[in-house]
């Protein structure tokens, strides 16, 4: 095992505030120099990526299956990982969550039931009586953790818009307003790339940006909002193009 690879791979997860990342995502977001050293290309197949990464896992990393994808996973407290996932995406059904996490079905059941028993998770039923999972935080409402799609900004403006829109729709869930910090984290683009894409869409009147209650946000969430050319801090956006 090459220790340097191991450190760089772990850093990759850490920089994105993630516990795990799909192998295809890892391959896309890793620096090109590292990719070259591992003998990979940005469009390498998952099997090739797995083969290249496997020797450098060490004690801190592993490759596991999450739903149908293979993921690079940071070893650690699995219950904390599950809890963080629920905090990042509150209101997901256990089934959806299970398919998105790198746990076996048995592991997921055991961890979820244990967190429910400890009162760290709670369940609500939706209109169709399906259970939805929420984190219980002693310090107040849960804060969203970064959950980027791990997509690099797309050079083509139209493709960029499509990716942004897809992420917007995923986060919107009928609420019409989406917080800019959530969108930024969902996409995982560099700050400059995200800000310039947002400013462009706004200039084109594709989106409208809105200010909001800064006191309801954490310092990190505020930092991930958007300050425009006129100095207005904008916290949420609506998609207006279809209007």
């Amino acid at each position: 095992m090459d220790e340097r690879f191991n450190v760089e791979l772990e850093q990759l997860l850490q920089d994105r505030g993630r516990d795990f990342l799909s192998l295809s995502g890892v391959c896309k977001v890793m620096p090109s120099a590292l990719r070259a050293r591992l003998g990979l290309k940005s469009n390498s197949r998952v099997g090739e990526v797995q083969k290249a990464l496997q020797p450098h896992m060490g004690r801190n990393l592993e490759i596991r299956k999450a739903g149908r994808s293979l993921c690079l996973v940071r070893r650690g407290e699995k219950d904390e990982m599950l809890l963080r996932s629920v905090q990042a995406r509150p209101g997901k059904s256990p089934k959806t969550l299970r398919n998105s996490l790198p746990f076996t079905a048995a592991e997921f059941l055991r961890l979820t039931n244990s967190l429910l028993k400890e009162g760290r998770l709670r369940v609500e039923l939706n209109a169709r009586c399906e259970p939805l999972l929420f984190a219980v935080s002693p310090e107040g409402p849960p804060t969203l953790q970064p959950q980027p799609l791990a997509l690099a900004p797309v050079p083509d403006a139209e493709a960029e818009k499509a990716v942004l829109r897809a992420a917007f729709q995923e986060l919107e869930q009928g609420r019409i307003f989406v917080r800019i910090c959530d969108l930024r984290r969902r996409l995982g683009w560099s700050r400059e790339a995200f800000d310039s894409a947002l400013a462009r869409l706004r200039r084109e009147r594709t989106v409208q940006l809105h200010s909001g209650d800064v006191s309801a946000m954490t310092q990190e969430e505020l930092q991930d909002s958007f300050v425009d050319e006129n100095g207005f801090r904008m916290l949420s956006l609506t998609w207006t193009e279809a209007r």
């Binding site: 400013a199 706004r202 200039r203 200010s211 050319e229 006129n230």
Partner: peptide, 12 residues
């Protein structure tokens, strides 16, 4: 130039 940046709420 300021207003060309995008749509603003009336208060802005």
């Amino acid at each position: 130039a300021k207003l060309a940046v995008g749509d603003y709420a009336p208060r802005h």
